[in-house]
Amino acid sequence: MISLSSILAVLFLILGLILSLYGVWTWSDSMYEKSLGWNLNLIWGGVVFSVGVLFGIGNRIATRFPKEPNP
């Protein structure tokens, strides 16, 4: 059975990758003048991708070391 954390990990990884690629693709666009020159698409794409990695690591730990039921 697929866990919710694995589904969320894949969704966050895909969304972060798309957002980061868009930030790289529009690197020298004039829209970044409004945000003081910060490429927010690239920054938040990296943050979202990192959250996806954390979900994936948490899922691997949870499946490798399952909780034992209390007697």
Results as ranks from 00 to 15, higher is better:
residue 25 W to K: 13
residue 44 W to E: 10
residue 15 L to Q: 07
residue 66 P to A: 01
residue 57 I to M: 06
residue 20 S to H: 01
residue 28 S to Y: 10
residue 39 N to F: 07
residue 61 I to W: 00
residue 59 N to V: 09
residue 49 F to R: 04
residue 64 R to G: 02
residue 3 S to I: 07
residue 25 W to C: 06
residue 54 L to D: 07
residue 31 M to W: 15
residue 19 L to C: 13
residue 44 W to A: 09
residue 51 V to F: 10
residue 9 A to F: 06
residue 46 G to V: 06
residue 60 R to Y: 13
residue 46 G to E: 08
residue 9 A to C: 09
residue 65 F to A: 09
residue 23 G to D: 03
residue 45 G to V: 04
residue 47 V to M: 03
residue 51 V to S: 11
residue 22 Y to W: 07
residue 8 L to D: 05
residue 66 P to E: 05
residue 21 L to M: 13
residue 44 W to M: 12
residue 58 G to R: 01
residue 48 V to G: 03
residue 57 I to A: 02
residue 44 W to H: 11
residue 47 V to N: 02
residue 46 G to K: 02
residue 30 S to G: 09
residue 1 M to C: 10
residue 69 P to M: 04
residue 68 E to H: 02
residue 2 I to S: 00
residue 60 R to Q: 13
residue 20 S to L: 07
residue 15 L to P: 03
residue 7 I to K: 08
residue 71 P to C: 03
residue 68 E to F: 02
residue 34 K to A: 15
residue 22 Y to S: 07
residue 40 L to N: 12
residue 39 N to R: 10
residue 14 I to T: 11
residue 58 G to D: 00
residue 24 V to N: 03
residue 9 A to T: 06
residue 67 K to V: 12
residue 39 N to P: 11
residue 37 G to S: 06
residue 44 W to Y: 12
residue 41 N to L: 04
residue 55 F to K: 00
residue 58 G to W: 03
residue 29 D to M: 09
residue 45 G to L: 04
residue 66 P to Y: 02
residue 15 L to G: 01
residue 10 V to E: 15
residue 6 S to A: 11
